[in-house]
Amino acid sequence: MIYVLSYVIDEIIAFREKKSLFSKAELIPFKSTLFILSILIPFSIDIKVAVIYTLIVWLLTVFLGLKRAALYIASSAAILYISMFLIALALNGNVYHVIRALLVATSTLSTGVIIFATTPPSHLRRFSMIYLLMITLNSVLKELRDIQIVLKARGETGFRYYLRIFTISIEIALSRIDVLIDSLKVRGIDISE
């Protein structure tokens, strides 16, 4: 999974440089709706609808050509489902709750990947905080691509590797946010507005 993650990041970053069907500014409301629907899955009355919806957004990642990301999402969902299902069985928990949580995670991750891979930051300039979040994420991901190589070279694996990636991501985001805010401000965008 560690090695797959770096390939997924590479794919998403490379995809952002291409123009795709979903890269049009007019599709921002559609993509936002997909994301909101993903978050609302726990409130869906019929679980079959939620499963079909999740399947559709996942297939959308495949259709767009984000194959490594789709594979990563599917395999992560499978690992997560098996472990949560076993825990639910062991603790006499509700399996339907496990499925709903898993569907939220899968569809939110799928729509998040679609939005990030197909939305140029300039489309979000009107929403200053989301815009800042998007360019910070972009900046952090690109830096992480290099850091992963360093971590692999040091032989870090397993949980420790993910923990390091997590802490380093936060460190990078914090160290860059000041300059990114300056960079937006000197162009005339006040993110505090």
Partner: peptide
Amino acid sequence: YGFIEASVKD
């Protein structure tokens, strides 16, 4: 640290 767009042109 200050790049905000996906291409030099943008």
